[in-house]
Amino acid sequence: MTTTTTVDPTNVDPSNEAQAQAWDGTEGAYWAAHPDRFDTALARYQPAFHAAADVGPGDRVLDVGCGTGLTTRAAARAAGDGAALGVDLSARMVEVARATAEAEGLPNARFAQADAQVHPFATAGFDGVISRTGAMFFGRPDVAFANLARALRPRGRLTLLTWQPADRNEWIQVFARTLAGRELPPSPPGQPGPFSLGDPDHVRELLTAAGFTDVAFDGLAEPEVYGRDAGEASAFVLGLLGWMLADLPPAERDRRTEALRAILAAHEGPEGVTLGSAAWLVTARRP
């Protein structure tokens, strides 16, 4: 994979260098080019996530792994005369987030390219920390959650949306079987990735060790929308996961591409192409 890394390496923890190269390279660029598609895929989770964050007027909110900023903008609106800061490793996504917030007239939504695992946030500088499918990518989640706990004021609230294990998420199993020809194996312990925070016992241990209390989990299951029809959904998924086909002979690539389109067509419905997903809504507080 070819990447262009603009994150200052002095501000990225060594355990996050691979993530910085991906998110500040071609992977992050793809997300930045398709913000509406990614936000639509997660749209069913947003109301519960936003409600759990419980942002109120005057609050100061930190959004970790903010992507193109939808959750940061929602927090900024709820904060009124407060503010929301979104941070992400991707310069391209941060650029899109800033431009969108400006276009929507949200001067209290601010953005920075930063590694939240080690960034020197002001101690007790935030009333809430949120992360919608972003916290699973820390190289050292123990260090990261300790840093986020330090950034929260006493009784400040942490709200995470994390994927449940891969075997409960139809979307990734369909894509892995069809494109890679195999089921996705369980995430290796301690390795960053979409399903690294899928085990509630592991997450509770991490958060408790970082100094959080009142750790709670709410299991959610929602359909994810990948496109209005199979053609649109197939193009989107291949743009994201086409690397799974890179080493195959052309005929096999074509066969798997057609298989993907066929299975997505079988999932077409009134809302478009939908696949099942399951996530944990995690909340905790700093004492």
Rank of each mutant, 00 (worst) to 15 (best):
T5P: 02
P9F: 04
E17R: 15
Q19N: 08
A22Y: 14
W23Y: 13
D24Q: 10
D24I: 12
G25M: 02
G25V: 08
P35A: 06
L42P: 00
A43H: 03
R44Q: 06
Q46W: 03
H50I: 07
A52C: 07
G56N: 09
G56R: 14
P57Y: 13
D59H: 13
R60W: 15
V61H: 05
V61C: 09
G65Q: 00
G65D: 01
C66G: 07
G67P: 00
G67W: 00
T72K: 06
A75M: 11
A75N: 10
A76I: 12
A78K: 05
A78E: 12
G80Y: 04
G86Q: 06
G86A: 10
V87S: 04
D88G: 03
D88N: 01
L89D: 02
R92G: 04
M93W: 00
T100Q: 14
E104M: 13
P107K: 13
N108E: 02
N108F: 02
R110N: 07
A114S: 07
A116K: 07
Q117M: 08
V118Y: 07
A122D: 13
G128S: 13
V129P: 03
I130M: 05
T133N: 08
A146I: 08
L148N: 05
G156H: 04
T159R: 01
L161Q: 09
Q164G: 05
A166R: 12
R168A: 13
E170R: 11
W171M: 03
W171C: 02
W171S: 03
V174E: 13
R177G: 01
L179T: 04
E183N: 11
E183G: 05
E183F: 04
L184M: 12
P185H: 10
G190A: 02
P192W: 00
G193T: 02
P194W: 01
S196R: 06
G198Y: 01
G198N: 02
D199I: 11
H202M: 06
R204A: 08
E205K: 10
E205V: 05
L206V: 10
L206G: 03
A210K: 15
A210W: 15
G211W: 13
G211M: 12
G211H: 14
F217K: 09
G219Y: 02
L220Q: 13
E222P: 00
Y226T: 01
E232Q: 14
A233Q: 01
F236H: 01
G239S: 00
W243R: 12
D247K: 15
D247V: 07
A251D: 15
R255Q: 15
E258M: 09
R261W: 03
R261Q: 13
I263C: 14
L264R: 09
A266H: 07
A266I: 11
H267T: 05
G269R: 06
P270V: 14
E271F: 02
A278R: 15
A279Q: 11
L281Q: 06
T283S: 04
T283Y: 10
P287S: 05
